[in-house]
Amino acid sequence: MRLKKYTDFALRVLIYTASKPEGELASKKEISDVFHISENHLGKIVHQLNRLGMLETIRGRGGGIRLAKPASEINVGSVVRIMEDDFALLECFERGSNHCVITPACKLKHILHDALLAFLEVLDAYTLEDLLSNKDELRNLMEI
């Protein structure tokens, strides 16, 4: 199972934003500099996280971004499900484009489906707050 960079970056934005000291805003420029991600790409991610109610954006001079709700209310599994638009692990997972002749008798599809569900179940057990149990170490690494 491999997640898209978009999902990875969304999780990094949330971790960075949640790591900021209480009341302090983050900026796309800061996040871009820390993770070496283009500001343009981050803008799309921040916009989506804002629309989903995970981030709050404050416009204007002195503006920035911050969590829109407590880190304990942001579920990692939910973030991954929202950011990933496709969990088709193999061709046989895709509707309408499966050309594999063994699909009707193949057990692999069912095994991989179970594995995907187990993967997501593990992610569902964690919140953003769980990812911050070492907040001081994260802040040092991100130079916050």
Rank of each mutant, 00 (worst) to 15 (best):
R59G: 10
T17V: 15
A71L: 05
S133E: 15
M1K: 05
K20H: 08
S27D: 10
V34I: 15
L123V: 01
C92I: 07
R61W: 09
A18K: 05
G77N: 02
R61S: 08
A105S: 12
L120K: 12
P21E: 11
L89G: 14
G63F: 07
L116F: 05
G23S: 12
N98M: 01
G63H: 10
E137D: 10
I65P: 02
A115K: 12
I37H: 11
L89Y: 08
E94C: 03
L3T: 06
A10N: 04
D136T: 15
M54C: 05
E143Y: 06
A105W: 10
L14D: 03
L117S: 12
F87I: 05
Y16W: 07
L90Y: 06
F119C: 06
K69P: 03
L52C: 01
N140W: 04
Y6K: 15
C92M: 09
K29E: 14
D130I: 05
I82S: 01
E30R: 12
Y126F: 15
K5Q: 12
M1C: 08
D33W: 06
I37R: 14
L117P: 02
I111V: 13
E91D: 13
D124E: 09
E84M: 14
E24T: 14
R66V: 06
E22A: 13
A105G: 05
K29R: 15
F35T: 05
I45T: 01
L49F: 02
L42Q: 07
A68H: 09
E30K: 12
D86K: 14
N98W: 02
V46R: 11
K4F: 04
R51N: 12
L89F: 03
T103W: 08
L141I: 10
S32L: 08
S27A: 12
R139P: 04
S72H: 10
K107R: 13
I45Q: 00
D8G: 02
T7P: 00
L90R: 10
Y16I: 06
E73D: 15
E56N: 14
T127S: 15
A88P: 01
I111K: 13
M1G: 12
H110F: 09
L67V: 08
R51F: 02
L52W: 11
R61T: 11
I102T: 13
M83E: 02
S72K: 14
E56I: 07
Y16T: 10
L52N: 06
R51A: 09
L123D: 00
L117I: 14
I37V: 12
I58W: 04
S38R: 15
I82G: 01
I65Y: 01
S133D: 08
G62D: 10
R61Y: 13
V79N: 02
N50G: 10
K29V: 15
L42F: 04
L132D: 02
L112I: 04
L132F: 07
E137C: 01
D124G: 04
A115M: 14
R2P: 04
D130A: 05
L67T: 08
